[in-house]
Amino acid sequence: MALLSLRDVRIHDGVGRRDLVHGVSFALTPGKAVGIVGESGSGKTLTCQAVLGILPEHFAVSGGQIEIEGRDVSTLTQKEWTAVRGTTIGAVFQDPASYLNPSLKVGTQVAEVVRVKKGLGRRDARQRAIELLGAVRLRDPERVYRQYPHELSGGMLQRVLIAAAIAADPKVLIADEATTALDVTVQAEILDLLADLRERTGLALVVVSHDLAVVAQLCDEVLVLRAGETVEQGPVERILYEPRHEYTKLLIAEHEQYGLDRFTEEKELDHVA
């Protein structure tokens, strides 16, 4: 059974009186990773928010169906939503610092999630939080536990948020531009961590990015979104080697002409020769 499935999901903007997302579909099974590529305003973030039940005011799912573990989310009550978030679906976003309280130690904030979601006592929650900080490969988790958000770098904060997101052992993790604000080497560390979590725990991923390469690195299936429209969808190999839509071709050409791919291709050819 699919952990998460979207069928022709449409999202309507009640103020602008128009659909901003016109039909997004995909299904996610355990251990699988789906990527959504698109520029700002393409509807990728709205899609994630719809899946998490946190669409901003005036926005609503106006068509199609979202199912989490076979349950239609439109039937969920507020209470049931709260139960689903964290335990079935976790999420991390672009600006990690804004999701943490600057005046509390990061460890206690992770421990709080554990206490609420897992019903653990204070001491057990602390123990579990330290384990989680270790699981996201923060060096010296005991020390990080006692630190405040301003003492940590952007990459470390994103790890802390990933730790909080997986605290209640969700089956799906949504990463919405989670590495966009980070340095390239740090971005690679976070992407490696996600790949690692997926392999070790069977965590299914929804990776959202403006960069096709980021998505290609992690995912099996890719959706290319433009102005709310899915312009192309398919297995990552197919998208990369036989793009059909002009926009996808542009995204690929950008990397081939101006990115590292320009040189790495040569390198591969050298190997063959």
Partner: peptide, 14 residues
């Protein structure tokens, strides 16, 4: 080398 290896590329030749 880490920078090169970390930059996301399409064909993951890095």
């Amino acid at each position: 080398r880490l920078l090169v290896g970390s930059a996301p590329t399409l064909r993951s030749a890095a």
